[in-house]
Design a protein around this nucleic acid. Sequence first.
DNA 1: GGGCTACCATGACGGACGTCATGAAGGAGG
DNA 2: CCTCCTTCATGACGTCCGTCATGGTAGCCC
Lengths: 202, 202
Amino acid sequence: MTRTPRERMVLSAAQLVRIHGVGATGLRDVVAHAEAPRGSLQHYFPGGKDQLIAEAVAWAGDYAARRVARVAAEIEDPTPGKLFAAMAGQWRAEFTTSGFDGGCPLVATVADTAATSDSLREAVGKAFEGWQRPVAATLEQLGVPPARSASLAVLMLSALEGAIVLARAHRDVAPLDTVVEELRPLLDGAVGKRRRRASTVD
Amino acid sequence: MTRTPRERMVLSAAQLVRIHGVGATGLRDVVAHAEAPRGSLQHYFPGGKDQLIAEAVAWAGDYAARRVARVAAEIEDPTPGKLFAAMAGQWRAEFTTSGFDGGCPLVATVADTAATSDSLREAVGKAFEGWQRPVAATLEQLGVPPARSASLAVLMLSALEGAIVLARAHRDVAPLDTVVEELRPLLDGAVGKRRRRASTVD
DNA sequence: GGGCTACCATGACGGACGTCATGAAGGAGG
DNA sequence: CCTCCTTCATGACGTCCGTCATGGTAGCCC
């Protein structure tokens, strides 16, 4: 709750980028949203806007990774399909309660800066990696063969990000529900036969 | 080849949005890229930047829809999985030959303006619809039951858009290949049994 | 030819942006 | 007490933005 001004600025940057994109997010807006002193910007972020956005992206990646781990632990009788449904469900909940103004900050950063700033693009790449890793790890834990866990994690992230974009464009959570339903048999079918039998016995 | 200045401006706007996002695409950049007179902006687009971007988005949606129809006609022995592979293959080709600077203009527009401009958000929604329609129609033509064709089309668009974002972030086409491979059995398995037998006989 | 319309050219305006220079509080350590 | 260093405050600079006002040119129609 009581975060340092520096943390608040990184957090506010992530939230504003989610909504307005990188280009339309002004540093003055960030300090105002963070209720932080403007003079602290050049003190804490001597690298300027790029540094601030890069840290916001890194934070967003960590946050997504932590959320995966947490939601995976809360599922009862977990399966890959249920994991994906839970991940999409968090976005569904956000859209229905808070509206469709905020998207994924990683997508926004890629769209705005992939061609311009190599450092930001790399920051997003690392963030996606850090998000993909716990997803793949959870899949393996659920019985998905290690050879396929990474591929399925990429598929899950891709479908989720794309569905988020479609949902925002239509102001409707239906695309999220659709990809969850269509992907469920594929994901649950990827569980190794041996493990699947054992877990039903367990 | 010889397009009217107005068309050139819409086209250039779409290309620049693809690369830099909406916010970072200046109207002066557009007229320079289009080699069009700056004074024509207020003449052809009295609605200002929003109108120009909206038309660029609409053009991009039409273009994507036309490309789906064309690529579907070129596949031999077509199946849903092959259709998706062909759609992703066009992006793969673009990335490998032209680099990762350009993404999907629809995604960029959603990320930058979904919270700010209702007219632009609706324009993107219509564009996605116009893109989804020929995909679903082609799926039905290939034997997918009408009840599922729309759902599968949404899944294909979502996975493709997400994979494009991941590919740009990593500067690597691997995510595109991954989603194609992982989705192939699901897509081909959605072909109705009756139609599938009939087509093998045909 | 005169007038009307479509198209293009140019410059200015007000505002917002990221960045930097300068300097003030305020506690820590000598 | 004085000094150092972290933290914050404020104002200015140069640049670019989208928009608009104004005016010029070219061609068609009466």
